[in-house]
């Protein structure tokens, strides 16, 4: 039921920001209209879920929204600039553990924890990018592939945040204006999702986005016509890192307990890539479609099949989609239109 609600988001957001004429004469961005539509939609979702009054709705909604943030983040670097970040699980976990560490050390709450997590993972993205982005793109990808393994090693060996045993966060029973803790977490993630999609859309329609697209199409030519490619790529990796970390920060608050195995779950790594590519990388709407579709499917499927089989299916879908529909669902519709 929540999946249906989510599909509503994407349809209405689509109405709010027409992209009927992509890459023709400079599209008028309608930024205010987009934000208004997104906020109205978010409010409608909250009201709708409250009327339904089922905790599971918040749970499923959080699950899908978290993937909207994660895949929008991936898309800024992967979809626009063509640089593949395999480290989504690493960035996500780095965000989650930043929130845990700051709570233990200073008693910081969720919202400042999110800000701090974004800061830490942004630096992580910038650092990895700075060391590898002067080379061919694959070297950046390989570095991000290893990053998750190393971060996991660090966390497992770091007793302060629980090591391999994991860490607990005592959740309050209620957060005042919200009917339940589940609703509170849902609303937090909803805000992050609106923010992430909005940022990704703003990037796409801005000068930065054009520069990234030029890099994706032909990096040498982009440099030759005055595009500062390294700087743009670093901005994109940093943004991508920030948003991935922000998606992870609420994780320990959401589940009440987090261990390295769950934080570095393979599910994040594969979904962060599969969702944008299946939805249609290169457009801000693609990751949203992918996250709603794949996230909804996985949410529905966990009831009947094991989580490993679930992930296995996602892996196959990724391979099949990139082979047969390299432009994703959006590209497929555009070509038919």
């Amino acid at each position: 039921m929540s999946a249906a609600g989510e599909r509503g988001v994407e349809a209405a957001v689509g109405l709010g920001a027409p992209r009927a004429a992509p890459k023709l004469l400079a599209p008028s961005p309608h930024h205010a209209l987009f934000w208004l539509g997104a906020v109205l939609l978010g409010a409608a979702l909250v009201v709708g879920l409250r009327l339904i009054g089922n905790e599971y709705g918040y749970f499923a909604g959080y699950f899908i929204l978290q993937y909207i943030v994660l895949s929008s983040a991936w898309n800024i670097l992967g979809g626009y600039a063509g640089y593949v970040n395999f480290g989504a699980a690493g960035f996500m976990a780095a965000g989650a553990y930043t929130a845990i560490a700051l709570r233990k050390a200073f008693g910081l709450d969720l919202l400042p924890g999110i800000v701090a997590a974004g800061f830490v993972t942004g630096l992580l993205g910038l650092g990895t990018g700075y060391l590898t982005l002067r080379l061919r793109g694959v070297f950046f990808s390989i570095a991000t592939l290893c990053l998750a393994v190393v971060l996991q090693t660090l966390i497992v060996n770091w007793d302060y945040v629980g090591g391999s045993r994991g860490a607990y966060i005592v959740r309050p029973r209620e957060v005042p204006p919200f009917v339940s803790y589940g609703e509170y977490m849902f609303v937090v993630m909803l805000m992050l999702a609106i923010l992430a999609v909005g940022i990704s859309r703003t990037v796409e329609l801005s000068r930065l986005g054009r520069g990234l697209q030029a890099i994706r199409d032909n990096e040498r030519a982009a440099e030759a016509v005055g595009v500062p490619t390294l700087r743009l790529k670093l901005i994109a990796t940093t943004l991508c890192g920030v948003l991935m970390g922000v998606a992870g920060a609420p994780l320990p608050y959401y589940s009440g307990y987090l261990n390295p195995e769950a934080a570095f779950s393979l599910a994040y790594a594969v979904n962060a890539i599969a969702m944008p590519l299946i939805g249609g990388a290169g457009s801000w709407l693609g990751p949203v479609i992918g996250a709603v579709l794949l996230g909804g499917l996985q949410q529905a499927a966990t009831v009947t099949i094991s989580s490993a089989l679930n992930l296995w299916i996602v892996g196959w879908m990724l391979v099949i989609f990139v082979a047969l529909f390299p432009r994703g669902i959006i590209g497929w519709f555009r070509r038919r239109a």
């Binding site: 593949v84 395999f86 793109g137 599969a274 992930l311 296995w312 892996g315 990724l318 990139v322 390299p326």
Partner: peptide, 19 residues
């Protein structure tokens, strides 16, 4: 399309094998 899709393909293969 080696750069983006091809890399994603091998990632998918890796993932399918592991899971």
């Amino acid at each position: 399309e080696e750069a983006l899709q091809g890399l994603a393909f091998f990632f998918g293969v890796m993932f399918i094998i592991e899971v």
